[in-house]
Amino acid sequence: MDEDKFSDGLRTYTGRALIQRPFFPIYVLLGVSYLLVFIGFVVSLSKVATVSSELHKMHADAAREPFGHDSHLFPCGTDTRQWEYSNGKCYYFSLKAIPWHQAKAECEKQQSQLAVIKSLAEQNFLQTRTRNERFWIGLHDLHTEGEWKWLDGSNYITGFKNWKTGEPNTYLNQDEDCGQLWINGQWNDFVCTSNSYYICEKPLPKAT
C-alpha cells in the first residue's frame, strides 16, 4: 500500500516537473532579451551623446574660422581664390604684363605689395610659379643708382639675394632700376617702364 502511494506520488511529481520545466528556457530567453534591449538602449544614448558633442565642436570650430570650412581649401580667403598660399603668406601672380610702377599700384589696390623675397625657400616657391616668364618684384634702386631697396624696408645688404651672373648692371646706357624674376627664376634689373608680369604678396588673413 505504501509502495503504491509512493509510486503515485512519484508519477505526480514527475508529471508536474514535465509540465513546468519547458517554461524555464523561455524565462531565460526573455531575461536575456530584456538585457540586450537595455544594453542597446544604453549604447544608443552613448552614440547620441557622442554625435551631439561632435556637432557642438564643429559649430565651435566654424565660429572660430573666418571663412568656415572653405578656409582649409582657400586659406587666403574665399573671395581671393586666385591667391596662392605658402609659408604664412599669400601670393598673386598676374595674368597681364605692365610697367613696374603700375604693378606696384595694382598690388596696393589689393592691400598688398610687390613681392619681397627673404629666403631661399620663398625664392624656390616663386620661381616654380614664374618659370619661362618675367615678373616684377618689390626691389629697386630708383632713388640712388646702385643702392637697391626692398619696398617693405627689409635690409637688402644683409638679406637674401639671387641675381643673375653680371647683374645688376646697365644695358645700352639705359637705367635699369627695377628688379624682376627672370625666366629661370634668377633676379634681373630691367627698365621700369617695360612691361612684365608681377607678383603681389600679403600676410595670411587672421581670424576675426
Rank of each mutant, 00 (worst) to 15 (best):
G138I: 12
D189L: 08
T193S: 04
P203H: 03
W148S: 00
L10W: 11
I98Q: 05
Y92V: 01
S7H: 15
S46K: 04
T80P: 03
F135N: 07
K96Y: 09
Y85Q: 04
T165C: 07
Q102E: 15
T14P: 02
I137V: 02
N124D: 13
F24M: 15
I98K: 04
V191M: 14
L95D: 12
I157C: 12
F190D: 07
D189S: 08
T193Q: 06
V28R: 12
L114W: 05
F93W: 11
L114S: 00
K149N: 04
T78F: 04
C107N: 03
Q180F: 10
L73C: 09
N184F: 09
R21W: 09
Q127E: 00
L142F: 11
A49P: 06
F160N: 04
F67M: 14
K89Y: 15
D177P: 02
S52F: 08
S119A: 01
W100Y: 09
K104H: 09
H143R: 15
G40H: 13
F6P: 05
C90Y: 04
D79C: 10
A60C: 09
R134D: 09
A63M: 14
V28W: 06
V116A: 00
P99C: 05
Y27S: 12
D152G: 05
L114M: 08
F74Q: 01
K164Q: 09
A121V: 03
L181V: 00
L181Y: 04
L55I: 10
V37P: 06
K47L: 08
F125M: 04
D61I: 01
F125E: 00
V51Y: 10
Q186C: 11
I137E: 00
F6A: 14
A17Q: 08
Q127P: 02
F24Q: 11
K5Q: 13
K57H: 09
G159N: 04
I183A: 11
K149T: 02
N173L: 12
W150D: 01
E122T: 02
Y92N: 10
C192V: 05
K57I: 14
F38V: 03
A49F: 10
Y197R: 00
I199A: 02
S196M: 10
Q180D: 05
L204A: 05
V37Q: 15
Q113W: 07
V37N: 13
I157Q: 14
F6Q: 12
G15E: 13
A49M: 11
N173M: 10
G138P: 01
S44F: 10
I19E: 10
R11V: 14
D141F: 01
L139Y: 03
Y156R: 03
M58C: 08
R11H: 11
S154R: 02
S33L: 14
I98L: 00
Q20Y: 15
L181K: 08
T170D: 03
I117Q: 01
I39V: 11
A207R: 02
G9D: 14
Y92K: 00
T193K: 11
C76N: 01
G31N: 08
K206M: 15
L45A: 07
E147I: 12
G185S: 06
P22M: 05
V37F: 08
Y85A: 12
F38L: 09
Q111N: 13
E167L: 11
P66E: 03
Q82D: 15
S119G: 01
R64C: 05
P25Q: 06
T208M: 14
E133V: 01
I98E: 06
A17D: 07
L35W: 05
C192M: 05
S154Y: 08
L151T: 05
P203M: 01
E65Y: 10
P205Y: 09
E3K: 01
H101P: 10
N132H: 10
